[in-house]
């Protein structure tokens, strides 16, 4: 996008937080003990630029964002990903881009990030389980990448696939879902400026449990649409299969837009529990399209969202 701030760092130039800490600890010698006590981000900055699309709401803490995750490849408990996802190797990550594109191929993270500028997008995040948080993602618009690889005219949908690594992902040994995890968007949803590929959070490289090194964020849809650790992006002319829809079509539709009026068969979606608010946090009414109606409601004009849930 023209006029956006350009990042001249390569992905491989970014020092992972762990390595950075080690260096600091070596330098600081005895002071390292004190440093070890620091909980939180603000260490290996990605220097993402602010964005007009960010909400003014206060982001949840680093702890909330990185210890309360649904990433079933690493276990079904909310704390499992933070405990188990360290085994995921993200070095040498490659994304296969194929289907109806001009430049299909295998792209490294450097290829993907070349020429893009990272932005901080502070978005509301609403899970289908009726909880929510506010997350300061770092990423770039999916349309940037799609325009670079050249979407062919027949393409109508974008399909995504998560890595499947039984050796690194303890959760895939149980068949909660049909692995690998797959997701999809309509092309116009994918091209919307709110839709980003995120490579970080809190100005830090994406923690493994949040879907390192690159994941989708679609803030007006339930969290499970925002697929993690992407290894394949396919442009197609047919609506792609999506994991939760395959698992239970009556509970999870292809669109899965946040909608307080369409309840999940097993629970209401009219309100949400705000994570990080402690024991007595008040529930909050859920907003249509998670409050992103002004930007995305047009995508669904004339559609019955109760049927296309």
């Amino acid at each position: 996008m023209a006029g956006r701030w350009k990042n001249d760092l390569n992905w491989s130039d970014v020092t992972p937080k762990a390595a950075w800490l080690n260096r600091r600890q070596l330098m600081a010698g005895a002071g390292a003990l004190a440093l070890g006590g620091i909980a939180g981000p603000a260490l290996a900055k990605l220097n993402a630029a602010p964005s007009q699309y960010s909400t003014a709401e206060k982001p949840d803490s680093w702890e909330v964002v990185t210890t309360y995750n649904n990433y079933y490849e690493f276990g079904t408990g909310k704390e499992d990903p933070a405990r188990n996802a360290h085994t995921l190797t993200t070095e040498g990550w490659q994304v296969e881009i194929d289907g109806l594109v001009d430049k299909p191929g295998t792209y490294t993270m450097d290829d993907i990030l070349k020429g893009t500028s990272l932005e901080e997008r502070i978005y509301r995040f609403r899970c289908v389980e009726a909880w929510s948080m506010v997350v300061p993602w770092v990423g770039f618009e999916l349309s940037d990448l799609l325009n670079r690889v050249g979407v062919q005219s027949g393409a109508k949908y974008v399909a995504f696939e998560t890595a499947l690594r039984p050796d690194e992902m303890p959760g895939v040994n149980s068949r909660v879902l049909d692995w690998p995890y797959v997701e999809g968007l309509r092309l116009d949803e994918a091209m919307n400026p709110l839709t980003i590929l995120a490579t970080g959070v809190y100005d830090e490289p994406m923690p493994n449990q949040n879907g390192a090194p690159i994941r989708l964020i679609v803030p007006w849809k339930y969290g499970f649409k925002s697929i993690k650790s992407i290894v394949r992006i396919t442009l197609t002319d047919t609506q792609p299969a999506t994991s939760w829809n395959k698992a239970n079509a009556s509970e999870y539709g292809f669109y899965s837009n946040v909608n307080p009026e369409v309840s999940h068969p097993r629970w209401s979606q009219a309100s949400e529990r705000v994570i990080g608010g402690g024991l007595f946090a008040k529930r909050k009414p859920t907003l249509m399209l998670n409050g992103y109606g002004p930007q995305v409601a047009d995508l669904y004009s004339g559609m019955d969202l109760k049927k296309n849930f």
Binding site: D60, S61, E63, T67, Y68, K78, R273, I275
Partner: peptide, 15 residues
């Protein structure tokens, strides 16, 4: 545990 943070960031569900 819920009050003192021992159940993580979502004490209500934890309890």
């Amino acid at each position: 545990q819920g009050v003192t943070g021992g159940l993580g960031v979502d004490p209500v569900k934890g309890i």
